[in-house]
Amino acid sequence: MSEKKNIIGDHHHPHDHAHSHLPSDPELRVKAVETLLLNKGLIDSKTLDELIDTYENRIGPKNGAKVVAKAWVDPEYKKRLLNDATSAIRELSYQGRQGENMVVVENTPETHNVIVCTLCSCYPWPVLGIPPTWYKSDEYRSRTVREPRKVLLEFGLSLDSKVQVKVWDSTAEIRYLVLPMRPKGTENMDERELAELVTRNSMIGTGLPKEIK
């Protein structure tokens, strides 16, 4: 029964937790653990820099906006995107960590989709980057499944009572992206201009794309 030995037990005893030895200032806490791991040769500071730079400057909602804009102008792409989002998104070279299994859900005049993760903070990194603070907040995690319409109102989004709200709780390794409706009056805009209208919130379902003034 060697497997049994590997069971990670239930942590019943708070005094056993190593983390209780950490300093009270979170900045010092991180510094202590980081320095220890660096000195033990378990992590590389250049790797940390590369990771942070990647998600601060290269991977973010601009990626998702390009996917959405392409779907708005290219009906064949939209079909592929709704049928197999992972492959369609990979066509634009967005793939990998926290986006291994993508599903795109389409907003229509009848249906409005909203994404949440009630259990932690699951979020489609390759197309949206690292989740914003509100997405990870207790308030968003607890309330969105029970009262999505009230939550959306706080984002300034008021939905007609005839529209059905579908909330997608990311409880497994599927990551969701909302395909918002293309704003009116954008018929003459090209893909690049359209991408500028696509906001992060519109791809989570807590907002709409920018409108043409």
């Binding site: 000195n39 040769g41 590389d44 250049k46 790797t47």
Partner: peptide
């Protein structure tokens, strides 16, 4: 020079490759 690098360490040169592959659960 005083750090003994662990064999399993994730090197900066491999970051993009590893992120791109991700950790599929299928």
């Amino acid at each position: 020079k005083d750090v003994k690098i662990d064999q399993r360490i994730w090197l900066a040169k491999d970051v993009q490759k590893t992120l791109g592959w991700g950790g599929p659960s299928i």
